[in-house]
Design a protein around this nucleic acid. Structure first.
Lengths: 207, 207
DNA sequence: CTCGCAATACCTCATTGGAGGTAGCACGAC
DNA sequence: GTCGTGCTACCTCCAATGAGGTATTGCGAG
């Protein structure tokens, strides 16, 4: 029996590439293509695929939220992330949300196929370059919601005083949050904290 | 006679997608795939394609440098950029380097095909979402080499004093550069200057 | 029930950062 | 030759930032 796969990616070119790779395999069957998270959730309900290939950062509902929704309804669904983003925060969030694999788009075609097959077989798929990021000296960093909020405003160039105003707190509180942020990210100042956070996928430019 | 196309992209999945899209067209022929800029330059020498589809930001030689090299040797070569990055600085640099088209990866498959055909026919290919960025209120910003250098260091969290030390200048000079940078980018402070520059493709995180 | 932690707020202090102005020098464009 | 511009450097001044510290509240885990 063949492995049914649902592709979820907002780039038509990428979808075409994955489809081309998988349809060459006699034991695989692409049952649908979704272009964002919400569509992905709906289509996996409809087609009940063995494996969902999922991009992160799509317009509308992103991949992480989609993974959570799918896993909530179908805890046994196999979801493999296929994305260009290699920030360790993204990897952690995806796996925490319930993904069973994480591939980067510079993965060779053959390896994508193998990953789908392994995922369908119930195995975890974490290639060594990705696994490296998980283990690396970057010890798992969790910013609190408040800290994320403050950091996002700092990235937009707001001064502590202005951040305090928009979140309805005192400037001193904002300073403490930023101090914790810089400490957690091992940043010398707010500017480096922002670049580190962007690099590791902790915040995004389009907030 | 069919249109010969060279694909240059570091993502195997994307290459497969483009190949799948173009080989469906009877008048198109994918003559090769390169995975970085240097390979792209070499392969277009070898295969003399009508159109080169070029990604930006590849490991080793990037797309911009590759476009410059190709155009220097073959001013009539048609080069179409196909990338995920929509910062206006990237678009400007690519067109300045000699690209005759600029597509984003969220372009529909059919439009990619049309773009290749138009490029081969000698027409410029700037879809409206991209053209929008060119015209947009973002009036072309050019940072000087020194300013780019200073901004990159600022992004890494160096203080003005430290930036001054590594570039062998006084702190006051660094301040002036940063002042000009913030003025050009319309940023409230160095932190916003960094995020704006990252967003618009003026600097990259992996400097 | 405690313990830990997030979030809040206050304090002091030294350093940094950014606004404003002026000005010399080198180089390329016109 | 002159103009514009990039790069350099100096000056002053005040606001903002970051490093220390302490402490209260509330909440969830154990």
């Amino acid at each position: 029996m063949s492995i049914s796969v649902l592709i979820t990616d907002d780039h038509p070119v990428v979808r075409a590439g994955i489809r081309a790779l998988l349809t060459n395999e006699p034991d695989m069957d692409v049952v649908g293509e979704a272009s964002d998270g919400a569509e992905g959730v709906a289509m996996q309900q409809e087609f009940d695929p063995d494996v969902v290939l999922m991009d992160l950062r799509m317009p509308g509902m992103g991949g992480i939220a989609a993974i959570r929704e799918i896993r909530a309804a179908h805890p046994d669904r196999r979801i493999v992330v296929l994305t260009t983003y290699d920030g360790d925060a993204d990897i952690h969030r995806a796996l925490d949300a319930g993904a069973c694999g994480y591939l980067l788009k510079d993965t060779l075609g053959r390896e994508v196929v193998n990953a789908v097959r392994n995922a369908a077989g119930g195995r975890k798929v974490i290639p060594s370059p990705v696994a490296g990021r998980l283990a690396e000296y970057t010890p798992r960093v969790d910013l609190t919601p408040r800290e994320l909020e403050v950091l996002a405003y700092a990235a937009k160039g707001l001064r502590n005083k202005d951040i305090a105003r928009v979140i309805g707190r005192t400037e001193e509180t904002v300073k403490v949050h930023l101090k914790h942020i810089m400490s957690k990210l091992d940043a010398a100042d707010r500017t480096e904290a922002v670049t580190i956070a962007l690099q590791r996928g902790i915040i995004h430019i389009d907030d």
